[in-house]
């Protein structure tokens, strides 16, 4: 993960990509949108703090748009 504020462009692209899929590993997001993984990680850090994206633990951790994936009991 890099340090410092995330690039707003990358944040936007992450949100756009996550709107198209159910959930994804952040590496797959980075590959799909053609950005560095560390920049995506920084973007996700801010997006989760802004309550737009959330982490989803399904034996490994994915990211998804907040509230998009329903798991049992959620």
């Amino acid at each position: 993960m890099g340090r410092g504020p995330a690039n707003p462009e990358v944040k936007k692209k992450v949100l756009e990509y996550l709107a198209k899929v159910e959930k994804a590993k952040s590496r797959d997001v980075a590959v799909a949108i053609g950005e560095k993984k560390s920049d995506v990680d920084d973007a996700v850090k801010e997006l989760t703090a802004e309550d737009l994206v959330e982490y989803l633990y399904i034996t490994t951790t994915y990211i998804c748009l907040k509230g998009k994936v329903k798991t049992p009991n959620s």
């Binding site: 959930k23 399904i58 034996t59 994936v69 049992p72």
Partner: peptide, 13 residues
Amino acid sequence: KTTEIPTLVASCP
């Protein structure tokens, strides 16, 4: 009724 199938498939190691 309860399960998203891709999520379930992904959970198997």
